[in-house]
Amino acid sequence: MATSITTDVIRPGHRLDAFEPSHSAGAVVSFTGLVRDASHGQAVSSLYLEHYPGMTERMLDELEISACAQWPLHAVDIVHRVGDLACGEVIVFVAVASAHRQAAFEAASYLMDQLKSQVPLWKRETQLDSAQRVWLIPT
């Protein structure tokens, strides 16, 4: 079980290799979020992610606890990038393991929904053409 905030490049393949649920786990579901090169019809050159040091890390831990209370999970990995990101880089990686796929799918979906709306993280895009910096609002 682990959650973290990082300024380092996230490598989903490496994290999945290191993800070792117990042998009673029959399903692993992972999600990888990437920086898109366009948003709302505008070409994007980069993305900046801001967090609330201390609070963000604690809320990720609480999110993991909340998921484990709702589904029988054998392992959880949540890592979220902050700082400056280039197009194509990984913003977030989430993996969960459970005995059966239904719980794993539901828990991964829950974690991503909560990450998008309940954890203090904010995205700011830089537009390619104008270099204008735009803080995103929830869709």
């Binding site: 609330y52 998008k116 203090p120 904010w122 995103l136």
Partner: peptide
């Protein structure tokens, strides 16, 4: 006390 806009992680 912190003030911030709606969160947009993930």
């Amino acid at each position: 006390i912190a003030f911030f806009p709606q969160m947009t992680g993930g």
